[in-house]
């Protein structure tokens, strides 16, 4: 028997219905736990479910709500797996699913796009230092976040060897380089490159190794690349990306190396980075302030 429509509308205003359904859908437990959760009960008591949701010929109201509830975490997991494939590869499907459940509870999507859902995953591992492998997972997630940021970054012009050669000799020392928008430089406590590569090749993930590691993430021809760096390469790239003038940065890098081969090596690195398209432009003028990213 149908109740009076006005009474129903008053009992279940649109805003209440929406807060209730969302509370149930995003709850990480089973459907009956979700319906009985304090967030859901505050809006619609579980005892009133039959007054709000109709059964179908084959499903109860609980089962019908569970269709939406069941799809929520699957959708979040699919989105995060797309941005964090090496993290999933390392953890395995079950542990990754549990991670997603905990993560989206703390950092639910507040954006119109799922592309930014995973932006807080490195921070999540800092929030939970007691989580198994948390320090390593923080470093791995930082590298994967850099990859997804590089993928979506605005396209930048690429500095060419020709434009570098056009710099007057007297301006060389004070010239500064501007990295492309996709450029990301990371320093981590754990080696993460082997994990990124093992996931790409479908090989088993190695055990985490605590070893100071340096990585640059960049984009060329709309494809994203990662390159492992030595400590010396990292220091120079960090200087250059931070706006240290070329002359000063190169001198500092050469001083860190053996005198005989220092400058030669530094210029070889520099040529590689320019050829890989890591820099957008060169400016002859006052230097910018220095800053780098640490995983």
């Amino acid at each position: 028997m149908r109740r009076d429509p006005n009474l129903r509308v008053e009992a279940f205003p649109l805003s209440t219905v929406q807060r209730w359904l969302q509370a149930v859908v995003v709850h990480p437990g089973e459907i009956l736990e979700a319906l009985a959760s304090s967030e859901a009960e505050r809006e619609v008591p579980s005892s009133d479910l039959a007054a709000l949701v109709k059964p179908s010929r084959s499903l109860t109201p609980e089962e019908r709500v569970d269709i939406y509830h069941g799809m929520y975490l699957l959708r979040m997991e699919e989105a995060l797996a797309s941005d964090y494939p090496a993290t999933k590869h390392f953890l395995g499907a079950q542990a990754f699913g549990e991670l997603v459940r905990d993560y989206v509870r703390r950092y639910p999507s507040r954006s119109y796009t799922l592309n930014r859902l995973g932006d807080h995953l490195p921070q999540f591992f800092l929030d939970e230092p007691g989580r198994r492998h948390a320090p390593f997972l923080h470093d791995l997630a930082s590298a994967e976040l850099a990859v997804s940021q590089a993928f979506d970054a605005e396209e930048s012009p690429k500095l060419t060897a020709e434009s570098l050669q056009a710099i007057p000799p007297q301006a060389w020392d004070s010239a500064t380089l501007q990295p492309t928008a996709a450029f990301r430089l990371l320093r981590s406590r754990y080696a993460v490159l082997p994990h990124l590569e093992s996931e790409k090749r479908g090989l088993p993930s190695p055990a985490p190794v605590r070893k100071a590691s340096f990585l640059v993430v960049y984009r060329r021809d709309f494809s994203v690349y990662q390159m492992g760096l030595t400590r010396g390469e990292f220091a120079l790239l960090d200087d250059l990306a931070g706006g240290v003038p070329l002359g000063q940065a190169v001198a500092r890098a050469a001083a860190r190396l053996k005198k005989a081969e220092g400058e030669k090596k530094v210029f070889a690195w520099f040529r590689t980075w320019v050829a890989e398209g890591m820099f957008a432009s060169v400016a002859c003028g006052p230097s910018r302030s220095k800053g780098s990213t640490s995983a």
Binding site: P5, R8, F12, L14, Q18, R19, Q22, Y68, A79, R110
Partner: peptide, 15 residues
């Protein structure tokens, strides 16, 4: 609602 996005196409009551 309340600033969140479930990224699902959730149903409306037809009122």
């Amino acid at each position: 609602v309340v600033g969140r996005n479930t990224h699902d196409l959730l149903p409306l009551p037809y009122t």
